[in-house]
């Protein structure tokens, strides 16, 4: 695609040169009304195109060079990429130093993801993603695979960044965000007595009997506990230690659970390795196919149950990649 655009850019460049040679033609004054007119028809370039090139030469000049970069956008405000939409801003991304620091803390210092997230003010999911991709990057390096370094340098120059400076608190994004639950978007009038302490738990119950309160839906419940202990006057050192230990224990338990599950799965599987394929046999419960033979968790094809995967509207794109 870019080669095509390159050739078209060349072509337009040529037309442009000729446009400069004939300014009258460029403005579109020449219009052939009669077939016997000897005046040449204006084929060079349209007014719209010449306007565009004038804009590119004047204001667009600012955006042409992307090699020696700093973030620059079309909008009126410094971090606004779309001129008409001030509600979308280009937010800072984690730079190389921050990614390295996150990876170091998680992999070398063995700090829990939640502790890293709380300390650096980066979302837990983002911390996990950074570690995952950094590990892959290190693997590529050890394998001698080539990284796209020039690309990374160029792009990171053009983006606003959050960088890590030791001993300085940087705020990348809020860590304790909760989704606005569908049930809570309706307006509700609940009469209660004036003397009653109507807390967040009560509010959640008022919306729905099973709805959890904001505290229970928090991704960082340990951080709330930390703040509570802080208010209770627990010394900072001890408080932090406890927080670290709690989050680490939770993470370890989760890892152990996953490993146990994988081991159980492995136990249930019989592997037969031929030189070309590895066959894996598992016990299947035939009851899960259900009454109509179309149970979602059922395996294989059943006699007498026609496929409907060629029917109209059947989507065959996978919904998840394990």
């Amino acid at each position: 695609m870019s080669s095509r655009s390159a050739s078209s850019a060349l072509g337009t460049g040529l037309k442009r040169c000729s446009a400069h040679a004939a300014p009258a033609a460029r403005n579109g004054h020449i219009q052939v009304a009669c077939s016997f007119s000897t005046t040449a028809q204006c084929q060079k370039t349209t007014k719209l195109r010449s306007d565009m090139y004038r804009w590119l030469d004047m204001k667009g000049q600012n955006f042409e060079d992307s090699q020696h970069g700093f973030p620059r956008y079309l909008g009126h405000l410094p971090n606004q990429p779309f001129p008409l939409n001030p509600l979308f801003r280009s937010e800072p991304v984690l730079d190389e130093s921050m990614r390295e620091e996150i990876y170091r803390r998680v992999k070398e210092d063995k700090v829990s993801l939640k502790a890293v997230s709380a300390d650096l003010s980066v979302d837990i999911r983002r911390v996990a993603a950074v570690v995952r991709m950094k590990a892959l990057e290190k693997q590529w390096e050890s394998e001698g695979k080539k990284l796209a370094k020039p690309y990374a340098n160029a792009i990171l120059c053009l983006l606003p960044k959050t960088s890590y400076t030791p001993g300085q608190q940087s705020i990348h994004e809020p860590v304790n965000e909760i989704h606005v639950h569908k049930l809570t978007t309706q307006q509700l009038f609940v009469p209660v007595s004036e003397s009653r302490q109507f807390t967040r738990e009560d509010a959640a119950k008022a919306f729905h009997r099973n709805l959890l309160s904001a505290d229970a839906r928090s991704p960082h419940p340990e951080l709330i506990e930390l703040q509570k202990r802080k208010l209770a006057g627990v010394p900072d050192e001890e408080n932090q230690g406890k927080f670290q230990a709690e989050t680490k224990a939770e993470e370890d338990a989760l890892v152990e659970k996953l490993e146990r599950r994988a081991a159980q799965e492995e136990e249930r599987t019989t592997r037969v390795d031929t030189d070309r394929f590895e066959y894996r046999f598992k016990d299947i419960n035939m009851e899960v196919v259900g009454k109509n033979g179309r149970g979602r968790k059922a395996v294989g094809w059943r006699y007498g149950v026609p496929f409907n995967d060629r029917r109209k509207g059947q989507i065959k794109i996978p919904t998840s990649v394990p």
Partner: peptide, 13 residues
């Protein structure tokens, strides 16, 4: 390799 022209105004993640 060097980045293509007019990339800067579109660079946001």
């Amino acid at each position: 390799w060097r980045p293509r022209k007019y990339l800067a105004p579109f660079a946001f993640v």
